[in-house]
Design a protein around this nucleic acid. Structure first.
Lengths: 343, 343
DNA sequence: CTGTTAGCGCTTTCAG
DNA sequence: CTGAAAGCGCTAACAG
């Protein structure tokens, strides 16, 4: 029913390959013929069938993005950066949300087989070796955002530096008992790479040591996830101690939110009773006046998208992996939002 | 290079159509043969080529979601609901972010032509008639979330009721000068349908009238977008008046955030100097203790996804359009986050 | 420059 | 039940 390349060819009085040529902007077509074909296309309202084209070219003009939670402001912001780049590049973006670690396996299993996308961007984790190999066999480039892995192109920040900056700031404020809350130490599926949370901890420890303060493992708490609830629970462990810290460095703003919530319940006022520094600088941070370490989230996405895109086109990419800068953003440390007694 | 259906057929000593049959779980295959084919598939590590399958079946196993901003917590939450449903249904999800109204035209233009997705979910706006027709010609079902349009399946809430509930609550608190901030009155591209913001205003007016308070147009302010910044600007117009309102109903939580920011700058304490009610109940609302009208965002996404999916399969859908309930969630109205003087 | 022809890998009649 | 063969609509050699 729909008009095909044959209809156009017939209408223009040429062969289908000529139509294909003008469609693909191949130069080997006489201007005159080109016009004629274009007119036929216009007249018939012809639109190439993407499915057929995909099969022929064996690609799908799509890049996939694998992220763990659509609920994470950080990941969604990275996604924004990716989306913008891809949109102007004329590529489709399909998202795969993990939600559970087990889905990660099965998803990657599927993804690495069928040609569902021409390139893949993975946010905040690194796929296991076998998947990487399979993607390679299919010539599907994979790049990671927010995670550093020597094996594949990665876009990340200097998390050690970030942790250092945050801690240093707290130290500068006169704090000596500084807690640290991270998501988790162990990579969920033990597949190499540098966990951001662990790196931030290294920076934290380094700053401590430089200031002559011994590292106290009891001051580190794991939340498991980057979520407010879990952050609050992790904070509670720290804040319930007799020798509770006077300041906390949270590995993400979302966790910091949990800390705030916990502090509020405990009747601790920020920043007087408890100083707080987050990480990421999500949109919300400026609203609540949270001091944090800013990561260029959109930029990360943009770079990752640019890299996969070029790799997909077979272009040579100069810097396959890129480290982006972090920056400490000092705010009133939630002072603007003082506590009020609950009803 | 990769193993095809022919390789499997040869290895199993059958014809390719038989392999195809077992692949598609067609019953007309002798159990014995089936096993043999399955073994060959296993042995060769065969994976069907999706591109070829797509061309043959002329579909892509993908549904597209068109949203205006990936920065909108509301839309992202609806997206979550969609994603969950689609993932378990084994369908891919590709997202199209608008960002600018002009992109909307070109995007829909493209989308409505090529078979890039088998179904489409549009969030918070309604496509123009010509696009709808084109999608219909291609048998691509379109459903809308967060917008009601008689022409196509829509999932929405009773916004009039929502506005009524919010206003009624404020009235109950003793307020008589209640402001209303909405995104915009005019549909950006004048394409019919019921604008949520306008409906909420109807509920607002109704509540006012019922309480014997005349509707004052000067108490309504437009922000243009659902954004904190724009919300703050719109709030400023209201709050700068000599006869400023003592309460504000914001058409979204994000706008309410802007109102809070504005109030903070103006030195107004919530909820004492200014009462506030938002709309949506985004994740953040509970954190800051904002009273709001909850919409079941994930549910909206889920329903929309379910409807397109069934429509794609040619199934009959009982209720093509669905209205979901709204609910007033009373919180301390930001009282928990009292003001503190700025440095 | 341009037309012919052979696939891309799978689904789907249509005969056996 | 099963195989042969004809597409799906487009791209890409390969001859002119």
């Amino acid at each position: 029913m729909p008009v095909t390349i044959y209809d156009v060819a017939k209408a223009a009085g040429v062969g289908i390959s000529t139509v294909s040529r003008v469609l693909n902007e191949n130069t080997n077509v006489r201007e005159e013929t080109r016009i004629r074909v274009l007119e036929a296309i216009e007249a018939l309202g012809y639109k190439p069938n993407i499915l057929a084209r995909n099969l022929s070219r064996s690609h799908v003009q799509t890049v996939g993005v694998v992220l763990s939670y659509l609920t994470s402001p950080f990941q969604v912001t990275v996604l924004q950066g990716i989306e913008r780049f891809l949109a102007q590049a004329g590529l489709d973006l399909t998202i795969f949300s993990l939600e559970s670690p087990k889905r990660r396996e099965t998803l990657l299993e599927n993804l690495s087989h069928g040609r569902r996308c021409d390139g893949l961007i993975v946010i905040s984790f690194t796929p296991q070796q076998r998947f990487l190999q399979r993607f390679q066999r299919y010539h599907t480039p994979v790049v990671i955002a927010d995670f550093r892995d020597e094996r594949i192109p990665s876009v990340y920040v200097d998390n050690v530096e970030g942790g250092y900056l945050a801690t240093k700031h707290l130290l500068g404020l006169g704090h000596t008992r500084i807690g640290y809350i991270l998501d988790h130490t162990e990579p969920p599926n033990g597949s190499g790479g540098n966990e951001p949370g662990a790196d931030r901890q290294r920076g934290y420890v380094r700053a401590l040591l430089e200031a002559g303060i011994p590292f106290d493992p009891m001051l580190v708490s794991e939340s498991g996830l980057h979520s407010r609830e879990r952050g609050a629970v992790a904070a509670e462990r720290l804040l319930n101690r007799a020798d509770r810290p006077t300041a906390i460095f949270a590995a993400s703003d979302v966790i910091a939110l949990g800390v705030m919530e916990c502090a509020r319940k405990a009747g601790l006022a920020l920043p007087d009773d408890l100083a707080l520094v987050g990480f990421d600088d999500i949109e919300l941070a400026s609203f609540i006046g949270l001091t944090t370490v800013r990561q260029p989230m959109q930029e990360m996405g943009r770079h990752a998208a640019e890299i996969v895109t070029r790799l997909m086109r077979g272009e040579k990419v100069e810097r396959m992996s890129r480290q982006l800068p972090v920056e400490l953003v000092v705010r009133e440390s939630c002072g603007a939002l003082a506590l009020a007694e609950r009803g």
